[in-house]
Write a protein that binds this DNA or RNA. Structure first.
Lengths: 64, 64
DNA sequence: GCTTTATGCAATATATATTTGTCATAAAGT
DNA sequence: ACTTTATGACAAATATATATTGCATAAAGC
């Protein structure tokens, strides 16, 4: 399912998908697909995204 | 690096690597390698492990 | 001593995450 | 109107997570 929390956190930091991708070291498509919920990203990537967005794993990726 | 928190959580539940693997739906080797820190597991797998061990992502996979 | 049980290691095979490139579109700026 | 910027979609190629099998070892039970 869509990861709205991640998209919100990204826009709060005023970053485009492409800018976040560059900072995290992946392609724009990867970021886009994660936000669309069509991907099962690796733990290391999740952690890199969290650190860039000043969030934790539970903040962005933990449900219920 | 080694994931000691995961190993502790598993032993607290009195589960072997093989038992946890079966409950989570992966092979024993995958669990072993995650605990040894030689793997970059997928988010879905991390979540499945957390739920089986009654922990959250931050509990088992978030550092600092 | 022998047999389980639990764990680590290594090699090959398969599934899937991620990249790269390209196109389409809508919104914003000039 | 034109040009950027941001995003979604798609297909093919590459990298890597995960499965499978088999072997080695140490600890525990009998």
């Amino acid at each position: 399912m869509k990861n709205i929390r991640m998209k919100v956190a990204r826009t709060e930091m005023d970053l485009s998908q492409e800018e976040l991708a560059k900072q995290v070291g992946v392609s724009r498509q990867t970021i886009g697909l994660i936000e669309l919920g069509k991907y099962n990203p690796s733990l290391n990537l999740c952690i890199a995204i969290c650190k860039t967005l000043s969030k934790t794993l539970d903040d962005l990726f933990w449900e219920d």
